[in-house]
């Protein structure tokens, strides 16, 4: 699953950033988050409250008070000076350019080749994993998702946040597709290499 930002992205810092605009309660923070990062995985309420409590524990945020607005009572949170400092430090920090990319597709291709080679030795009958066919099917799935994202961003009235986050996902999917195309073209060489080790 591709999202507007990676799973490792700090939810703490995003919430701190949203608090910078002024005291807010947890429900509003969740709503704002989902609106600002439309292509990201939506935040769970539970995650919002646990994160807020940890921020308060570390002194980066504080409880401003409560309001009820006629409904159930809700806690208002605000950012502290330390919180602003931490936020500034994080925002300036360069994001490490993905030192270790987990490439599940590559792992599946290599395993398919290994299993296929083992299969011809032991049991010639039965369904054999086909690395090339797997790549084709994976490419089709990628393209389908890319068409969805493109339709989303070209829909009349799409706002820039939607367009930009769709672009980010599209660029990453495109990188996968390119890699799959070049790998497909060299699958025989790869098979020989994998089986030689």
């Amino acid at each position: 699953m591709y999202s507007g930002y990676s799973r490792r992205m700090s939810t703490r810092h995003v919430l701190l950033g949203l608090l910078a605009a002024g005291p807010t309660h947890g429900y509003d923070l969740k709503q704002q988050h989902d609106a600002r990062f439309p292509q990201a995985r939506p935040l769970a309420y539970g995650q919002v409250y646990t994160t807020l409590q940890r921020l308060v524990r570390d002194g980066l945020a504080a409880v401003e008070g409560t309001d009820s607005d006629g409904g159930p009572e809700r806690t208002l949170y605000r950012s502290t000076d330390e919180g602003s400092g931490e936020l500034a430090r994080w925002a300036e920090e360069i994001t490490a350019p993905a030192p270790f990319v987990t490439n599940e597709i590559f792992a599946k291709v290599v395993v398919s080749i290994l299993v296929a080679a083992a299969g011809t030795r032991t049991a010639p009958e039965g369904r054999k994993p086909d690395a090339a066919a797997h790549l084709r099917a994976q490419r089709a799935a990628h393209m389908e998702r890319m068409r969805e994202l493109t339709a989303l961003k070209t829909a009349p009235g799409a706002d820039l946040s939607t367009v930009l986050s769709a672009d980010y996902a599209l660029a990453h999917l495109d990188a996968d597709v390119r890699w799959m195309t070049t790998t497909s073209a060299r699958i025989d060489t790869l098979t020989a290499e994998v089986n030689a080790i």
């Binding site: 393209m143 890319m146 068409r147 493109t150 070209t154 495109d174 597709v177 390119r178």
Partner: peptide, 12 residues
């Protein structure tokens, strides 16, 4: 030859 351009189409 560009997957991002191909994604504008209904099918490929």
């Amino acid at each position: 030859h560009d997957a991002q351009v191909a994604a504008y189409a209904d099918r490929e």
